[in-house]
C-alpha cells in the first residue's frame, strides 16, 4: 500500500460539512468547579470567585473545557496527518453562566480552510460548540481551531 493520497478538495469539504451538526452533549455547571477554575487563573474579581456574590458566574472561558469526546463527524474525510494541534480558541460570552445551570451543547464544523506560509500549507478545521441553558438561551460559543499539516 502506497503512501500517496489524492489531494483533498477543501472547497468541496467546506461545502459538504460547514454548518453540519455532529455532536450533542450536556454539562452541569458545578459551583466548586467554577470557583476552582477562576482561582487557578489567578482571578481576583469576586463575580467569579465568590459564590455568595449577587452576580456570581463562570469565568469567560469556562466552557472551553467542556469536551464531549467527538472531535469530528464520523465520516469526515481524513485531511492532513494525525490528530492536529490546538491552534487557539475564540470564546463569545453571550450571557452569564450560573452555578446549577445545565448547558446543552451542539457541535458543528464552522469552517475549513488552508493557509500557506514558510513552513508549507496548513489546514485549519474550525469546530464550533454552542452552549444553551435550560431556558434555551445561548450563553457561550467556543470556536476551536484545529491545525493540520497538509
Amino acid at each position: 500500500m502506497g503512501n500517496s493520497e489524492a489531494p483533498v478538495d477543501l472547497v468541496a469539504v467546506r461545502e459538504r460539512w460547514m454548518g453540519v451538526e455532529f455532536d450533542w452533549a450536556s454539562f452541569d455547571m458545578h459551583v466548586e468547579d467554577m470557583v476552582a477554575w477562576a482561582n487557578a487563573c489567578g482571578e481576583q474579581d469576586p463575580r467569579f470567585t465568590d459564590p455568595s456574590h449577587a452576580d456570581f458566574q463562570a469565568h469567560p472561558g469556562f466552557t472551553t473545557h467542556c469536551m464531549s469526546g467527538r472531535v469530528l463527524p464520523d465520516d469526515f474525510p481524513q485531511i492532513g496527518g494525525g490528530f492536529g494541534i490546538d491552534g487557539g480558541k475564540n470564546v463569545q460570552v453571550h450571557a452569564p453562566i450560573r452555578a446549577g445551570d445545565t448547558l446543552h451543547a451542539t457541535t458543528t464544523i464552522a469552517d475549513v480552510f488552508d493557509k500557506t506560509g514558510r513552513s508549507g500549507t496548513m489546514i485549519f478545521i474550525v469546530q464550533r460548540m454552542e452552549f444553551r441553558n435550560d431556558d434555551d438561551e445561548l450563553v457561550s460559543t467556543v470556536d476551536w481551531k484545529m491545525i493540520k499539516k497538509a
Partner: peptide, 10 residues
C-alpha cells in the same frame, strides 16, 4: 492553551 486564555482574562 485554555489556561493561558484564562490567565489573560483574569
Amino acid at each position: 492553551g485554555i489556561m493561558s486564555q484564562g490567565l489573560l482574562a483574569a
